[in-house]
Simulated assay, not measured.
Amino acid sequence: MAPHTPPGGGGRTRPGPPLTADTDEGFRPTPPPRWMRWLPFLYVALVLLLEIALREEWAVSFFLIALPAIAAYAYGPAVVAALTVLAILLEGLLASITHHLGETHHVTADIATALVGILATALAAHRRGQERHLVHANSVAEALMRALLRPVPHQVGNVLAACLYRPSEAGTMVGGDLFDIRATRAGERAIIGDVRGKGLPAVRTVATILGSFREAAHEARDLPAVAARLERGLVREAEEIHDDELFATAVLIEYDSRTDRVTVTNHGHVEPVLISRGRVRTLQGPPALP
């Protein structure tokens, strides 16, 4: 948060566009590692090399029974079914080369491969369905989180503002982090905080705190009064969800352009840092409970 200087009023350089939590990335299933996608084909190559090296000493083609199960970890049902057919054909080809195609144990191996292939295909289909369900659930939660954590404008009242939000878990925005900044008659007021818990329950608590802040920021006389409003809102939330251990940590910030004064109230949150004239200082104040 930086004070805004009108054009010609002191030569302060305006920063570039703000970085916000509003990205266009969306949720997608995490693709399997490249080595896992190559594993079924490397496995087939290994079996063929062993067949050549050991010749008729071992029925190496029986190892192909595991091929559909290996493929199910990285591919969808169509590919798994195709690799099952490939495994059965290779088993038959290798058996015919050694003139054992009609023997009972080779027929049993083909049947076992088919059964494993059916189960692996069903497993791959179930995995794909679970991935789609997870993507949908995360997309809904992300849309909700974006509605709560609104993009920070480049200028808020008398200050320039920018925001960069990176969740600790890659690929997700759902969590208990919160931030906002408002221009009020008392000055520009901002909040940065974190609620206990994760997932949708945490999102509900974030909505409660941000709703209380966006109202109290305009009505409360000072930051302790804003914090008191947030406390009352969180107490009501804890009573509604029957959670006696619900809490949140937060830093409240106020900038008064008339006195050029910044006031910071920290309620159990990580200490904010002040960046000024190439120096970074941690702002430490009297301890306060969340």
Rank of each mutant, 00 (worst) to 15 (best):
G278P: 01
G199F: 02
R258T: 03
Y75W: 02
E51S: 15
M36E: 12
H105R: 13
P287N: 01
R55C: 04
A114Q: 05
N138V: 13
P167K: 09
A45H: 02
A82N: 06
L283V: 07
L83K: 14
R281L: 13
G171D: 06
P287S: 00
E51P: 08
R258M: 03
L144F: 15
A161N: 03
A248D: 02
T113C: 10
L164Q: 12
L210H: 03
L19W: 15
L230G: 06
C163I: 05
E215W: 13
Q155S: 04
G9M: 12
F179R: 07
E237I: 03
A147C: 11
P31E: 03
T205D: 07
T104D: 11
L274M: 04
S139D: 13
T263C: 03
V152M: 10
R14P: 03
P40D: 14
L67W: 02
A2E: 14
E169N: 12
R150F: 09
G187Q: 02
A114C: 03
P153S: 12
P18H: 03
L210M: 04
R185V: 12
E237L: 06
L86Q: 08
T5H: 15
A53F: 11
H133M: 11
L119S: 08
V280T: 09
A183V: 10
I70P: 00
L246D: 03
M36D: 11
P29E: 00
F213D: 09
R236V: 02
G16K: 14
L86P: 00
A137I: 12
G176K: 09
V226K: 14
M173R: 06
P18C: 01
R221S: 10
V280D: 04
W38L: 13
A59C: 15
M173E: 13
T84V: 02
A207Y: 03
E56H: 15
V262T: 08
P33S: 05
L246I: 09
P286S: 14
A81I: 05
E254K: 00
R277H: 09
T249N: 10
A225P: 00
W38C: 10
R214C: 01
I241P: 07
I192G: 00
P40W: 15
T84E: 01
S276K: 12
L67V: 01
R261D: 10
Q284R: 11
D222Y: 12
I275H: 08
A124T: 02
A114M: 06
V262G: 05
P33F: 08
T104G: 04
L39H: 10
R132H: 13
M173I: 07
S257I: 15
R34E: 09
H126S: 10
V251K: 09
A45E: 08
Y165C: 05
A122T: 06
E188I: 13
T108H: 10
S168A: 15
L119N: 04
H105A: 07
A69N: 04
G16V: 01
V60R: 02
V273K: 01
R261E: 11
A147L: 15
L49A: 15
D180F: 07
A186G: 14
D256A: 07
L134F: 05
D110C: 10
R127I: 12
